[in-house]
Write a protein that binds this DNA or RNA. Sequence first.
DNA 1: TTAAAAAACAGGAAAAACCCTGATCATTTT
DNA 2: AAAATGATCAGGGTTTTTCCTGTTTTTTAA
Lengths: 214, 214
Amino acid sequence: MKKHAVIIVDDHSLMAQALAGLVNEFDEYKVLDTFKNGAELIAGFNAGTKDPEIILLDVKMPVMDGFKTMEWLHTNKPNVQVIVISMEDHENTVLKMLKLGAKGFLLKDTEPDILKSALDTVLTNGFFHTQLVADALLHQSKTGDVIKDDALKETELEFLKLVCQEKTYNEIADIMCKHPKTIDGYRQDLFDKLGVRNRIGLVLYAIRNDLVKL
Amino acid sequence: MKKHAVIIVDDHSLMAQALAGLVNEFDEYKVLDTFKNGAELIAGFNAGTKDPEIILLDVKMPVMDGFKTMEWLHTNKPNVQVIVISMEDHENTVLKMLKLGAKGFLLKDTEPDILKSALDTVLTNGFFHTQLVADALLHQSKTGDVIKDDALKETELEFLKLVCQEKTYNEIADIMCKHPKTIDGYRQDLFDKLGVRNRIGLVLYAIRNDLVKL
DNA sequence: TTAAAAAACAGGAAAAACCCTGATCATTTT
DNA sequence: AAAATGATCAGGGTTTTTCCTGTTTTTTAA
């Protein structure tokens, strides 16, 4: 019997290797290779790695993160089914990945047999939905405007980073060489845009969306 | 040949199962069992699970986290060697775990052969040190006062969590059924204790030390 | 039991954050 | 050229936060 080829992309070696062992235990699947990030994956393809049927993709990775990798895969390997495996269950992440073409979304605390059925289902149905994904899609309207964090301008981003450094708005005005009232404008715009009440909301948003490193 | 018994405690099923597969591939080791958290581990012991030689312990877990579990193990199973396996490389976490009696500290992005040598070394030497651990010990003096986040009292912790929910101090006073001035006292104490200037510092501290979930 | 320590409460004040509205200037769009 | 857009700046007011310095009450320990 020909086994379905799987590639794993995860910067946590233990996780990647271990995941590989798990997949290899499923009779119908075989791990072709594992990579530490998107860049390595692409390098692998260029070096002759054959296309798998399924890629298990982590979100948080250095060098080339899950989103960028997903984007690349969707345009360059449209026939490869991608299942995202993430630590966090942020709805934004789920939605972003689905929009980028992911066929499934699993959390790292998923039971192994769910992984098995995710693999099976993605191959037969082309997608695998958990409750998590359903919820994310349901709340889409509510969080719809929050998703596009691409909408954050450079100035707003810089402002946000400074807020996350315990700076006061006056200090931020100095650093950014802008009038304090301008800074107050940034603040107001971001409050509206992100739907938060105060600076803490900004910090939480920035952290949740990896706009700042801890 | 008799194999060394290992138990894995990690709330991420995929990680736990996969890790088990990995350890089972090492000739000299055998996974006795896996548990989702400290409470389940203890329940397992009570239900007759035999003591392993080594426990691989995750830090972030619901119900009974790594620290509490480590504490319990150190007093109740002093002969079991514990290797902590963590996502984050916070020095505080490393030091805390070492103080609680952990014999090794690995990150989840460790290479599998490092895990192998960690297992071997812990059995023969009684500990396994990586550069990470060495660094943590070196900086111990500097961060000495920050380490003891045990010093955070229950009220302070509750206050901190509410701060991380965009609440104002007056709202927090209502929720905690305390006078606003009392809350202001908590705030001041925490500012001094943690060395921060404003609420944002509190939020960052809470997040960095996993006191709140994102 | 009494002394000491810790937790809760208080007043007052300055700084910072928050909110709304509108003006000015430069750049794009039509 | 005129209109629309977007970024910057402004005024002025309310609320919240931050920072002092204390007092009272409760808990803990000697």
